[in-house]
Design a protein around this nucleic acid. Sequence first.
RNA 1: GGAGAAAUGGCAGAGUGGUCGAAUGCGGCAGUCUUGAAAACUGUUGAGGGUCACACCUCCGGGGGUUCGAAUCCCUCUUUCUCCGCCA
Length: 423
Amino acid sequence: MLQLQHIRAQKEAFIAALKKRNIDAEPLLNQVLDLDEKRRATQTELDSTLAESNKLSKEIGMLYKSGKAAEANELKAKTAELKESSKKLGEDLNTLATELQEVLYQIPNIPNALVPAGSSEEDNEEVFREGEIPKLIEDALPHWELAKKYDLIDFELGVKVAGAGFPVYKGKGARLQRALISYFLDKNTEAGYTEIQVPHLVNEASGFGTGQLPDKEGQMYHVTGDNLYLIPTAEVPVTNIFRDDIVKVDDFPIKLTGYTPCFRREAGSYGAHVRGLNRLHQFDKVEIVRVEHPKHSYEALDQMVEHVKNLLRDLKLPYRILRLCGGDLGFTSALTYDFEVFSTAQDRWLEISSVSNFETFQANRLKLRFKDENGKTQLAHTLNGSALALPRVLAGILENYQTENGIKIPEVLVPYCGFDIIS
RNA sequence: GGAGAAAUGGCAGAGUGGUCGAAUGCGGCAGUCUUGAAAACUGUUGAGGGUCACACCUCCGGGGGUUCGAAUCCCUCUUUCUCCGCCA
């Protein structure tokens, strides 16, 4: 959520910046300013009404104390009118504040200056590429065929138990998955991230805090009986740890990592691109989350990008990094780098990580603040990234590491797997 | 799931209808003293709105109510604790 003071101060700049997202924010921003002005006017009026009735109440109290009941009763009669108008003003204020909130919720974050213009993923800017795309064997298979051939993943069984998009991992497939989770958590911990385990269901307040709610597209699974949501990413529970917090400036940098399953309804996705592990309703992901001083958040973003690079280097997977264009940038993000691994047998790139700086956008919703060097309270910056999303890494490994004799295991994973080939 | 108790500032803990945004202690910060530190002493120390700055307003778990006036009384929800039941 954008900060009101900022909208007041730099409306024009915001309109210009939001053009990169291909939206005309002017009507919304005008609406915000209009509602804000009305809200403040109502607030002022209410405040002075309350001030007056507070004053009267005190006088009445003193009159009673000194035994002047008649005078007190006289004053009491005067309070009725004040009471009525403050009640009405309070209701107006509520309505205005709610409306204002609703409009603010509709406005996405201001893209960073580095964000390229563009309308779709076609316009994302490749900023880095590394790793060799392997020459595959003659009868190379896509990962879903490999999964079947070596009995690693059973998609049909998942359909039986839950539905499409809920695979069952078996034997060495399950073990490889577990190895990846352990490996990522170990590497993240080495890099200074503290491992935590968080709930996989969150309440409404958490959903609003990180920006998944209001959920217009219905992307989250909603447990209506208890009004809880299945997390679409660990970002939600991990970042919400800091909701309503004021941290100390010495607490920075705050670096956390956690493994969770992620649940996404993926309404509207279907077709060949969602085959196999490409897009699932439930998948595993190891996430890194940071809370930073605004001065250092872009430094932190670079460090996170560097860290994810190292993970992929270690796995020896060919990958590229994209800087997302305005049209592809997430609602809450100011700057996002996507990592894509090359899925050789499918001959396409698969997104396996998304590393973002949200600046104060989430912090403002979360009321996540810190006391700065001068003792002033200000909003912190939040960041997060996948390190990494499992299924597509698995797809990349299966496809890129296939040989005539089976699927080799990346060297760094062998100690975690306990085997070096799937055959 | 049943019965009871509770929820106050960073923490502990007073406060049961008026001048209480809230005693006191601890912690934090600044200062005095000290070669330095500790101790002691003095001062300071919640958040949000509003203002050029004040004034002023709101907040004692959330929401609603009674009253001229609510941290204090009533209703409701949530959470925590104790006991019982069930249970990985």
